[in-house]
Nucleic acid binder design. Structure first.
Lengths: 224, 224
DNA sequence: TTTTAAATGATAGCAATACTATCATAAATA
DNA sequence: TATTTATGATAGTATTGCTATCATTTAAAA
């Protein structure tokens, strides 16, 4: 079974839907490879154009600027993550088990897909860890937010918050805890690899370090 | 009593010590104002040069690029924060009280200083919230880290971790929890203001929201 | 005080970035 | 077949992110 996942991405993020053409699809796929490789600051439309054997002009017809392209990629990721959460919680009745599955999803790499048209999930993961905060930590976040471009993030957050509330209905900060789990997963993965002194990772405990830290934190916070 | 705080900032961060001259000092002070006003992406040395009635060339003699200047500002902040923690915990013996003081420091604006030569603490706070992650979420973080430019952050983290351990010696992740407290303070402050749906802030509970969330999280995590 | 050294300001210049515009051609649709 | 639409090729512009030169001002050493 070789299937492909598509999500309805907010139309305000792009000028022309990249899903509507081959160059468009290639553009997003290669953007993921290139942002992973260069980092968002060094990534340019010029470099991407060369990579897809096209021109800057063509890319600008799809995306206003590289910030919007990153936003597109992250919207896809948030939708994908919400889909995965829904999918994996299917038929799991134990609330604690549900939360464990969520922590696992947030702290492990996605399974690589077979389809070669698909985005590189390993790269996507790293982009989310290293670059995602750059889409909202900007001066004009309020203006950008008006177009509802963060809705998939808010939806994912709300979904996790629901599971949190069903596990402990008395807990007062389900959404803040939800974003904390998401953001902390990124931070701890980044820190444990790049600035390990900011974490408690060590040679003995480096297996699933972030996962164990987050799970411990989550269940302690939600304990009565 | 009008005193000024100075910290020994890692020499590898700058080319020429900005503390050694008037333009240098003005440069850093005005950089804080300008980064606050424009956001780090829109901030340029050209704009800063105009602001201090000098030239780009002069600024480049002090800092290699704007990333280094931001790093300098954050180094100052981390030193300042560690100083404040040390200072405020003085003579406080109750461990729980100590942790409460730390949470308060992480989630509230600094008291504005009287000295007009001092950095604008309100702006500094906002910069830390919105821009601090941009100094380490870069592709060449490993190379940058070699110069020990993140030492003040690690020291602050270690200091808070010590208090955590003294409160609960059995807790296994004091440093990760420490960075989580710091980073989450920033996130929740940013989100509760800009993307409130990612938090549990509301009209009724907006007073010290982040503070209460973090404090609840901390003591739940550290409870037996 | 004079000499010397160092820091600054003014100016120039350059390659890369972040776009915008035009137009011919190719591809898709009517 | 005619017509719309997308692409590629090319050009151009303002800004950014630097580096280099040199005269002048300021500070330190002799």
């Amino acid at each position: 079974m070789d299937f492909q996942l598509k999500f309805a991405i907010n139309e305000k993020i792009f000028l022309r839907n990249p899903e509507s053409s081959e160059v468009g699809k290639l553009m997003v796929k290669k953007a993921i490879d290139l942002i992973y490789e260069l980092g968002f600051e060094q990534f340019t439309f010029k470099k991407l154009a060369v990579e897809i054997n096209s021109t800057e002009a063509t890319i600008y017809r799809y995306f206003e600027n590289k910030h919007r392209l990153l936003l597109y990629i992250l919207n896809w990721y948030w939708c994908y993550m919400e889909f995965l959460v829904t999918f994996k919680l299917e038929n799991v009745t134990d609330k604690k088990e549900q939360l464990k599955i969520i922590v696992h999803l947030l702290t492990h790499e996605f399974a690589e897909s077979a389809s070669r048209f698909d985005y590189n999930k390993k790269y996507l993961n790293q982009i989310v860890i290293s670059e995602s905060s750059k889409v909202y930590l900007v001066k004009d976040v309020a203006a950008i937010n008006k177009d509802e471009v963060f809705k998939p993030y808010k939806d994912l957050c709300a979904k996790i918050a629901d599971v949190i509330t069903s596990y402990n209905p008395h807990y007062k900060y389900p959404r803040s805890l939800s974003t904390t789990l998401i953001e902390t997963s990124h931070h701890q993965q980044f820190f444990s690899f790049n600035l390990p002194k900011l974490t408690d990772i060590s040679v003995e405990n480096n297996l699933n370090f972030t996962s164990r830290f987050i799970e411990n934190l989550l269940f302690q916070v939600l304990s009565y």
